[in-house]
């Protein structure tokens, strides 16, 4: 077991643990905060897997923007601070399906890779990813910009009922 494995195990444990707390805690704000921990641990996993750029983007966008947005939403919907007793539905089907999906996938992966070792690739720093992105993936990149614009417009229209209504 190498140092990378140890790091992966540790960060993975943190990520899974925090993820489990996100979906089980009965305090809204804490769920958001556990999400931060989970996303951060995943960013750490990216770093171990030599995906530097992705890791920083993860931190910037997810931890920085998305989580903040989610917390805003929590605030705007006047979620109570503290325990909310009515957050959950009966858990059996959710547990069955979620457990089935997670454990099934895990079993598939474990069965596929066992304990084979692979060498880590070259670092995915900004230069390498940027070269790849603007050489091979330019068109999807540009299309994504259109999608972002559409999402932007859509979000505005959805959240402003006075736009588009007839009266």
């Amino acid at each position: 077991m190498t140092g990378a494995d140890v790091l992966l195990l540790a960060l993975g444990a943190v990520a899974v643990g925090a993820g489990a707390l996100v979906v089980t805690t009965d305090q809204l704000v804490r769920a958001g905060l556990y999400l931060v921990v989970c996303l951060g641990a995943i960013a750490g996993l990216y770093l171990v897997l030599t995906a530097e750029l992705v890791a920083w983007v993860q931190v910037l966008i997810y931890v920085g923007a998305v989580v903040v947005l989610l917390l805003f939403a929590v605030m705007l919907t006047r979620a109570p601070i503290g325990r909310s007793p009515d957050l959950n539905r009966p858990g059996l089907p959710a547990a069955l399906i979620g457990g089935g999906a997670g454990l099934g996938l895990a079993a598939l992966f474990a069965d596929a890779f066992r304990f084979t070792k692979v060498d880590l690739p070259g670092p995915g720093n900004a230069e390498a990813i940027g070269t790849e992105l603007f050489r091979s993936w330019v068109l999807p990149f540009e299309v994504l910009s259109v999608l972002l614009l559409a999402a932007l417009v859509g979000a505005i229209i959805v959240s402003r009922p006075d736009i588009g209504s007839k009266s």
Partner: peptide, 16 residues
């Protein structure tokens, strides 16, 4: 959503 995901899971199991 439950039904959808359960269906997907079933298909996935069958495929696996």
């Amino acid at each position: 959503a439950t039904a959808l995901l359960a269906g997907v899971l079933l298909f996935a199991f069958a495929a696996a």
